[in-house]
Design a binder for these strands. Structure first.
Ligand code: SF4
Ligand code: SF4
Lengths: 162, 162
DNA sequence: TAGAATACGGATAATAAATATCCTTATTGC
DNA sequence: GCAATAAGGATATTTATTATCCGTATTCTA
């Protein structure tokens, strides 16, 4: 089990969009070039973000994406779920129903203990992702990335932002 | 991203093995029949458990598997990692290295903030799985499953255990 | 007003992973 | 010696991921 690479892409794109000045848009093309990613396929990830209402888009030249909400109000979980979906990572196929000793017509009340533990763990994962916002991410990145690289990156980006 | 179904299978099989009397073995065939699963493929999951030293096996008629450790010393995480592997669920492809503004020969010190958050969440998931033992699972199941079904199930199993 | 750049969605192809089956070998109990 | 078993290799089959291509509607710009 491994998350799709689109998750990493989407998170990095959101980090860039989070640093964009108010009202500016950044195109798929620019985001793809900046990260060295296939434009057409990255576009699908961005469309997922758009459908999840995390970003807004506009058409035409100088079109592209911008965040739809303040960075403090978008979490890692929002992005991950936009790309991966909201389904739990443990799917129960109800194999206990195949128990040969199971009485005719007997129907289990709810999810069994196995599923509940797996779902609790899934929720712990999500809770952690929910606890980190894009604002927090940008703050950390700003501290860690060398100032010159940070600035030249945003110069590069701004030159292409509509 | 979804866990393979072998995880569910392995957990249920461990739950059965956990209820087996000291020194008895249960075969793949019996476990597959009990859960209504494809024997050959379930066998692969059990082999994973065996390689992870969670279960011991013996050959010949009346052969099969038994737990290699006390139920209190086997956790959900042990079983999940035996089947799914120990790799983290977020794989970093280091796309920041593609940044066009990145200086020649510049090399990032360590994993970036994005990866660290994802890995923290992964660890939260594992911590939760680590916190539940097979002993705890069996205790819960024993409380929840109707006594008659519980007993007839283990009668069924014991008749086939070597 | 024409043209270029864009997001969006549908279709489809390529690749990788999960699921499943088959077969051979070595070991064990009877 | 025979039957049942775990183990592991080989190989299909099916599904998910990754990727590309194209048509349409929209928006900006010149
Ligand atoms: S995980 Fe629980 S609910 Fe799902 S099949 Fe197994 S016993 Fe049933
Ligand atoms: S997640 Fe972090 S370490 Fe991984 S590619 Fe992105 S920036 Fe680099």
């Amino acid at each position: 089990m491994i998350l799709k690479s689109q998750v990493e892409w989407a998170l990095h794109c959101c980090a860039i969009l989070a640093g964009l000045p108010e009202g500016r848009y950044l195109s798929t093309k620019a985001l793809a070039e900046f990260h060295g990613l296939p434009k057409e396929y990255l576009s699908k990830a961005l469309q997922s973000l758009s459908q999840a209402k995390l970003v807004e888009s506009t058409l035409g030249p100088s079109g592209g994406y911008r965040l739809a909400r303040p960075t403090a109000e978008i979490t890692f979980l929002d992005v991950v779920e936009a790309v991966e979906g909201k389904e739990r990572t443990f799917a129960c196929s109800n194999i206990r129903a195949n128990n040969p000793c199971r009485p005719e017509g007997y129907c289990e009340a709810g999810p069994c203990a196995v599923a509940r533990v797996m779902w609790d763990a899934d929720e712990a994962w999500r809770a952690k992702l929910r606890s980190v916002s894009l604002a927090a991410l940008v703050q950390t990145l700003e501290q860690e990335i060398p100032t010159t690289l940070w600035q030249s990156s945003f110069q590069w980006v701004l030159k292409r932002a509509g």
